[in-house]
Computed example of a mutant assay.
Amino acid sequence: MAIARLLREQTVGETRWLALDSGDRPAALYLERASNIAVLGARLEGRIGKTEPGAGGTFITLSGTMSAFLRTRSGQIRTVSDAPIPSEGAEVTVEVVAEARAGKLARVKLVAPGAGPATSGADAWRVHLRGAGTAPVEDVSPGDTIVSAAFEDALRPEVTLPGGGEMHIERTRALTAADIDSAGRALKGSAGARALSLNREAAGELARQMLLRGLGGLVVLDCVSPIAGDGGAKIRAAFAEAWNELTSRQSKALAPSALGLMEVAADWWITPLAERMLDAAGAPTPETVALEGLRQLEKAAQQARMARLTLALPQMAHDWVAASRLDAQALLSAKYGARLSIGVHGKAGFELFPTP
Rank of each mutant, 00 (worst) to 15 (best):
G13T: 13
G13E: 04
R16Q: 07
L18F: 09
S22N: 10
G23R: 13
Y30F: 15
A34L: 09
G41A: 04
G56D: 10
L70S: 04
T72P: 02
R73H: 14
R73N: 10
D82S: 11
D82W: 04
A83V: 12
I85E: 13
V92N: 04
T93E: 11
E95I: 07
R101I: 00
R107V: 05
L110A: 04
D123Y: 06
S141H: 09
S141L: 14
G143E: 04
G163D: 09
G165P: 02
M167V: 10
M167S: 05
A174I: 09
L175M: 15
A202F: 02
G204F: 00
L211I: 05
L215I: 12
L218P: 00
V219I: 15
I235W: 00
A240P: 00
Q250R: 15
G260I: 00
P272E: 03
R276P: 00
G282Q: 12
A283P: 00
P284G: 06
T285D: 03
V289W: 05
V289L: 14
Q296N: 10
L297G: 02
A304K: 15
A307L: 08
T310I: 12
T310M: 12
L311N: 11
L311W: 07
Q315E: 14
A317F: 10
S341E: 14
T355S: 15
